[in-house]
Design a protein around this nucleic acid. Sequence first.
RNA 1: CGGGGCAUGGUGUAAUGGUAGCACGAGUCCUUUGGGAGGAUUUAGUUCCAGUUCGAGUCUGGAUGCCCCGACCA
Length: 411
Amino acid sequence: MLQSKLFCKAKKTAPKDAEAISHQYLARADFIEQSMSGVYRFLPLGFRVLKKIEEIIRREMIELGAQELYLPVFQNKNLWLETKRWETFDPPLFKIKDRHQKETALGSTHEEEITDIFRKRIKSYQDFPLYLFQIQNKFRNEMRFSGGLMRVREFLMKDLYSFHSSEEDLIKFYEKVKKSYFKIFKKCGLKPICVEASSGTIGGDLSHEFMVPCSIGEDRVLICKNCGFAANIEKIGEIKDCPKCKSQLEKNSCIEIGHVFNLGTKYTKAMNAEYLDKSGKNHFPLMGCYGIGLHRLVATIVETNHDEKGIIWPEQVAPFDVHLIQVEDNAKVRKGAEGIYRDLQKKGIEVLYDDRGKSAGEKFAEADLIGLPLRIVVSERTLKNNCAEVKNRNKKEAKMIKVKELAKFLC
RNA sequence: CGGGGCAUGGUGUAAUGGUAGCACGAGUCCUUUGGGAGGAUUUAGUUCCAGUUCGAGUCUGGAUGCCCCGACCA
């Protein structure tokens, strides 16, 4: 991608309302733009990040044996009446009326939808287990929106639902999903801790949250450094000593980036979704649901991967792999840079090529702000030795690499 | 939903009730190019509706929007 053609234009100043560092950098680097309170537009750079994360998650879900589907945003009121969640307003639904005054809602979660699909076509024990997931926008009528992408009213979410014929099978899968979540978050450059949580309004007997320690986090988590026990303060209250080993607990602010629930038979019972076992007896299947909020994930990645100059994208979620910068806009330098641009692209490396006539300092500052993992500088000075300068965004020192060996060096 | 705050070009800011100005950005042209360059030129603003006043960005009332704190959440 030629930066001269890139729709996103870096800015020197952030909107004055942006307090969270992730909000400031994402806005300044022009990844996102606010449209209204709690609603954000993803511009081309931001969208590329979203797509990268989506693909990491999708691959892991498929690895788990889950099948992807796509459910409607419009939710049937009757389904929500069945589970008695329509009136409780929990999770906070956006209720709307059509022109015939018929009520419907925008999806805030999809347990009702998925259970309805399930009960219409699963009748036998032979169909278990079943795993279905989607990556789709959720709408939540929260009391308040805050922190840029941290808490918004419309956000992209991966939601996975599992159906089981035995508790044992559910627990086994539940643990598998937890492992898979750790893999996903690691690829996103995050090191979350898994904590016991209260299930809140989604319901169920058991749930775990994935928490990333961060000062702007809204959750308070108690961690035992001795035995590794960790729990949301919401679940266990303000206790001082570890319930497992009696050591002193440490209090941490955390961002919740994922949540897994053992729902038991809450939804299958409420919606009368039954199946027949071997002996022809009716049973309610057990359910699990597992969510990751992608907008918050983007914000959390930036919150925990930046320096005073800008974002430092983890490799796998960066909008491009390489930021190629030409210093001095003359025929020789341009020819050198264009050659590298073509070579790298041929190798399947995604390159953002700064071909603009801006000053070197300005280009470097913008490159640091945008935060691609690798920066390659081409100038008269480097070309004199048939070299280009290669620098990691998260390192101070740069290396001179022969232009001919660049592609090989990077692969 | 309760409490607090703010509202001026795209962004950040100024203007005793009396000419809406500055900087950055953006556009065009020229000169520049190793850490946010210079010149020329162009562009664009008082959230909305009432009221007070000879005169309102400024005062009053209302609406709307946005931010922060609490409860809620991925």
